[in-house]
Design a protein around this nucleic acid. Sequence first.
DNA 1: GAATGAATCGGAGGAACCTCCGCTTGCTGT
DNA 2: ACAGCAAGCGGAGGTTCCTCCGATTCATTC
Lengths: 187, 187
Amino acid sequence: MASARPLRADARRNRERLLSVAVQALSREGADVSLEAIAREAGVGIGTLYRHFPTREALVDAAYQGELDRLCDRVDDLLAAAPPEQALRAWMNHFVDYMGTKRGMGDALRALIASGGDPFARSRDRLTAAVAALLGAGAAAGTLRADVAPDDVLVGLSGISLAAADRRDRAQTDRLLGLLMDALRPR
Amino acid sequence: MASARPLRADARRNRERLLSVAVQALSREGADVSLEAIAREAGVGIGTLYRHFPTREALVDAAYQGELDRLCDRVDDLLAAAPPEQALRAWMNHFVDYMGTKRGMGDALRALIASGGDPFARSRDRLTAAVAALLGAGAAAGTLRADVAPDDVLVGLSGISLAAADRRDRAQTDRLLGLLMDALRPR
DNA sequence: GAATGAATCGGAGGAACCTCCGCTTGCTGT
DNA sequence: ACAGCAAGCGGAGGTTCCTCCGATTCATTC
């Protein structure tokens, strides 16, 4: 299960080139870039792309990992600036925005959230940790329930994001986030 | 906007044959049957299939409409047999089960829920009405909030179903439904 | 610095998607 | 009956997806 021997030099080169091309291509053309086009632009065969990133989601995930890290990192600032309950709500907004902006992240996210324990689950762990921090702070302060699993909140949040991405109705999204918050407050 | 003139005889024949083949094929092979295979088996060209059902979702939706009607019809029985709050929860279970069983309904559902007012939104109206009935009964009894839009509940429920379909973790699904119920109770 | 084995590459190929438009067929009025 | 004409049909064709495996290239050993 441990990461096997380091990649061969040419393999790493290819991987990095693919990734940087993918980042550009995704932001330039949106979610439905052709993978073949990415491979071509990176100067590698399509087979190589598929070996490094077995699914479209794996590629998108890897491409956006940096931004996703930033999203998770923001938790500390939020908690420093506002009480946990408000921090959580603010972070939810960021989360939904992020998913909305990164068009095409939607499906990747779905796969990501669904992943039980894949090698691709690093992002998922980070997200779970972020939610756990927010929930934990709220539980300590007594303003959020202590008996809700971070994982459940994350899945719920991703459900809302998916629905939001489809409908583009910001008001509804806010209402749904409000409902989720209601569910998380102690009775 | 009204339904234009009735379909020509041959068109209706084709439509019906496509639908019946699709029902069989979907239950036999699952969500990812090839549309070309369905068209072939129905003895029509692929173009005909696409004219009648512009997207894969439209076809799946039409194929499962009967079962979806049955799901909505069950609301009355549930309300007759138990207090609104429990009826709603029971119906949510049915909803999730239904989505889980009908593999491949997932994407169709997503498109369905997302549809603002397409000609294909009949199913969506039925679902909204079902939720509205349950919520209304609860509001009248004072055990459910009166200030939540049925539409929001439906979107939330579909989000949970999507997540559930991916993860196949029934316990988590139940917890999420529990959270949603918590959000729907008056404070 | 050549040989050798293993990791990696590349792209041909088969399947499915969806569109587009010339051809066919059912309907309507005379 | 039959002419005219929408409405409807069908499938070729351009794209993309993803797999598979022979050819290539790297790393290591002598």
